[in-house]
Amino acid sequence: MSAYASSPDEQNDHFGSGVGGSVLLHAVVFAGIIGWAIFNHLHNPSLGETSSQVGSIQASMVSAIPLPTKAPPVKDQVLTPDDVSKAAAPPPKEAALPPPKETDVLIKAKTPPATKTAPVPTPAPPKHAQPTPDTPKANSGEQATQLPQSVSQTTNGTATLTVQNRALGLRYAYYIRIVSSRITQNYNQEFPDPRASQDKSVTVLFDIDRSGTPTNLRIEAASGSPTLDSAGKRAIQEVDNFGPNPAAESIPIAFKFDYHHP
């Protein structure tokens, strides 16, 4: 009730009926929208489907698997026909000798007569002693097993080079001479102690590899004089390279230093 209303009519502002009408109207509109939506949902197709296909899988039943039919083999087109020609007839059997009868006698074949040969005369052994061929001997009296490839005289003794592969040594003789002269040049003859090294010799072994570098240097036979041993080793160690190796393989070399102070 309004404090400012002047009449009883005016005092009754119909609040109750207005609210009721409004609620009823909203409820009707709302129910209408919901109902329309439910109706639509139930009776219209969903998005992206047509009513005819909904919920079905198309399948057609067949009675058998449709494999290609088997072609019959064509006889005329086969390269090697099935009907082969006949194999050649086996050679006719030779008529076998009849087995010997028990009454048969064995006759021996004739042996040819032996031919006589005259005895070969052998030379009589010499009555006097034969000279033995000269064997190369070192100053130390030791006998060499192989003829050396190169021998050079030094102030104190000799330097002897032997190529263990003789074929290589002959084929590349010029190279072996260069090697020998390089080593002899580098051999410091003042280094070995004269008294300890007198009449002794050292043999050093090494290989000249394909580039011409001496490798694998070792002493084969030590002399017993350490100074002579190291002078021999140093003569080879001083060399970086002997020049290009003409052989396609490494050349093994034995180099022997004899010390003999005159």
């Binding site: 260069i178 011409g212 060399v239 970086d240 390279n241 002997f242 020049g243």
Partner: peptide
Amino acid sequence: IFRLGGGV
């Protein structure tokens, strides 16, 4: 010289 010079 290379072949006969002893590596120089």
